[in-house]
Design a protein around this nucleic acid. Structure first.
Length: 615
RNA sequence: GGGGACGUAGCUCAAUUGGUUAGAGUACCGGACUGUCGAUCCGGUGGUUGCGGGUUCGAUUCCCGUCGUCCUCGCCA
């Protein structure tokens, strides 16, 4: 035993009660042979063999086999009287303290699947710290119980190794991010949780005010305005691991409360933010998860991403870009192609390399049904062979025409070509989704591979069909690319904002922008969107006021922690990486929240419920 | 708000066109067993088929409603 180890052990022994552990269940090895130790933990499994009993003792650090051997125990380690009878009664999830001697396992008894597999603890005495009822589901590495039950007993689900791993790695990731930002002069600043409701964006969670009867705080959808005010304050570089709240319908990748890495910087342009965030993400992924990201992250203009990938969050784990065939199609004998072009539409195609054999006629029918779901009226296809094209469009593309099309698509024999002809929006949506679908079917979306990119210069506004008006595409504070734009009503859809998204493997993980920092421009943007000066004053007055007193140019970003962790760990949804998640109905099955409150509490807050109670 | 899937023993699932006493694995309880490690072998307990209503001689099965979970579209500046 090394001196350092001896000193550490001595320190451990000094202050502890007799039942307290000297070691964890994950650290004892052959090097600890013959030591007297105490372990604390949960009984994961027990195997009775008449005169010998094996217990697997688990804690967060690992599992150690404990042996209760009546004969050997008496002779070799002086097992306390009654221990064997006590151990016989123990069961799964009982919490115990075990004192014993570390013993190498016999020849052929080594368990190679565990770090502690070369040794076992020969018991001298056992203390029951807490007895456990039979749990509602077994604590196994593999989740066999359904999610409803797991969420109801979340503290048991969290005993499982995959969940503990997620919590641990999430914490490591966040710590790495904090360290990085601290080193780069960012200041961790807390912003209010009780704040002000704003009309735009998601629905707010509201909190009634007792002191101000009839008035409500809102929980923040993000710290957006406060972080910008930090810039006005001259704090220069802000960050926060911030909880955000949005009262919208949920999905596998959405929770009513979620966590963002929120940051903002003064006197910066896009590349300053992108460069530092890129370095931060690389650092966090490396230190948190041991994942090395290829750099630099490609940077796409929004329209370039749409043209090449059909969406604004391209999955770059595979290429298979959308290829524009409009010019070729315009003169085609194939009426679907020529007709689409005449109607002002476009024709684009995918070349699925080597996929011709992998898709039968039926398989292609399924792809056709798939694109139908996104508004495409059909899917034109062809398999490339040595002799030319085969498939639905082959007869229109025989001989030289076929060669020309094949060359345009950079196709080689064995490839599968897929085309959609329609209005641009439909083509991009359908082919963009088809690209992901086919990429997935061809095994090109490896969950262990990570590819990031940036998408820049999003449109500033988008048309809302339902409300028949323009609305913010990103957020109301994003600056236009052209500072001097005078009339937002002219060529509105062409106006670009200085907004950018961070994308990994087809997931939007972060979103930010260079902000408007001048009152006049901000007011004009609000005005264009039909927000009256009165509404501006009521909702954003303090921000507009702040700009009166010298707002620096600034920009920032917010990254979704839950999504990054879920992606890095290859989990299906973010519930798996949140300690205490809510259901798709925003209900906490464990705490049973939300819940009714007493009439007295309601009265004190001066609120009434309009819900009709049964009976 | 719309669409879809699911709900049977503590857990995971099965149960023929609607037909006898609703089964299996696992967990749990009891027994055997000194080298297991998802121990094994023998035996046993365990069910308001989510809840309410309907159709039927008869409903786990069909119909309506309701509750819950998941997925998805809308929504999420």
């Amino acid at each position: 035993m090394s001196v350092r180890r001896r000193v550490r052990l001595a320190a451990r022994m000094k202050q502890r009660s007799p039942w307290q552990r000297t070691h964890t269940c994950g650290e004892l090895t052959i090097a600890d042979k013959d030591q007297q130790v105490v372990l604390n933990g949960w009984i994961e499994n027990h195997r009775h063999h008449g005169q010998i009993v094996f217990l697997d003792l688990r804690d967060r650090y690992g599992v150690t086999q404990v042996v209760v051997d009546q004969e050997a125990g008496d002779q070799q380690s002086g097992m306390a009287a009654g221990t064997f009878e006590l151990v016989r009664r123990l069961g799964a999830e009982d919490v115990i303290s075990v004192r014993g001697r570390v013993r190498p396992r016999g020849e052929g008894n080594v368990n190679k699947n565990r770090s502690t597999g070369e040794i076992e603890l020969l018991v001298q005495s056992v203390t029951v710290l807490s007895e456990a009822e039979t749990p509602p589901f077994e604590i196994l590495d593999k989740a066999e119980a359904n999610e409803e039950l797991r969420m109801q007993y979340r503290y048991l689900d969290l005993r499982r190794r995959p969940l503990q791993e997620a919590m641990l790695k999430r914490a490591r990731f966040v710590t790495a991010i904090r360290n990085f930002l601290q080193q780069h002069r960012f200041i961790d600043i807390e912003t209010p949780i009780l704040t002000k409701s704003t009309p735009e964006g998601a629905r707010d969670y509201l909190v009634p005010s007792r002191v101000h009867g009839g008035k409500f705080y809102a929980l923040p959808q993000s710290p957006q305005i406060f972080k910008q005010l930090c810039m006005v304050a001259g704090l220069d570089r802000y960050y926060q691991i911030a909880r955000c709240f949005r009262d919208e319908d949920l999905r596998a990748d959405r929770q009513p409360e979620f966590t963002q890495i929120d940051l903002e910087m003064s006197f910066v342009e896009e590349h300053d933010v992108l460069d530092i965030v890129e370095a931060m993400v690389v650092h966090g992924m490396r230190d948190g998860f041991g994942i090395e990201l290829p750099q630099p992250f490609p940077r796409f203009d929004y329209f370039e991403a749409m043209d090449k990938y059909g969406c604004d969050k391209p999955d770059l784990r595979f290429d298979m870009q959308l290829i524009d065939c409009t010019a070729l199609a315009a003169t085609s004998d194939f009426k679907v192609f020529a007709g689409a072009v005449q109607a002002g539409g476009i024709v684009k195609g995918l070349c699925a390399s080597g996929a011709a054999e992998k898709f039968s006629r039926k398989g292609i029918d399924e792809l056709t049904a798939f694109v139908n779901g996104f508004g495409a009226k059909g899917l034109a296809w062809a398999k490339v062979t040595d002799k030319g094209l085969e498939g639905s469009i082959a007869k229109f593309y025989d001989g030289d025409k076929g060669k020309q099309l094949g060359a345009h698509m950079a196709a080689k024999p064995g490839d599968l070509l897929l085309f959609v002809a329609d209005q641009k929006k439909v083509v991009h949506k359908a082919l963009g989704e088809l690209r992901l679908k086919v990429g997935g079917l061809l095994g090109l979306r490896d969950p262990k591979v990570f590819r990031c990119c940036w998408v820049l210069n999003f449109p500033m506004f988008e048309w809302n069909e339902d409300k028949a008006r323009w609305q913010f595409a990103h957020n109301p504070f994003s600056a236009p690319v052209d500072w001097d734009v005078q009339d937002f009503g002219k060529d509105t859809e062409q106006i670009k904002s200085r907004a950018y998204d961070f994308v990994m493997n087809g997931w939007e993980l972060g979103s930010g922008s260079i902000r408007i920092h001048r009152r006049e421009l901000q007011a004009r943007v609000f005005e264009f969107l039909g927000i009256t000066p009165e509404q501006q004053r009521a909702n954003f007055g303090f921000l507009l006021d702040a700009y009166k007193y010298g707002g620096p140019p600034h920009g920032g970003i917010a990254l979704g922690v839950d999504r990054i962790v879920a992606l890095a760990l290859g989990r299906e949804g973010i519930r798996d990486v949140i300690a205490f998640p809510k259901t798709a109905m925003a209900f906490d099955l464990m705490a049973e929240a939300p819940s009714e409150v007493s009439a007295e509490q309601m009265a004190e807050l001066q609120i009434l419920s309009t819900v009709k109670k049964p009976g």
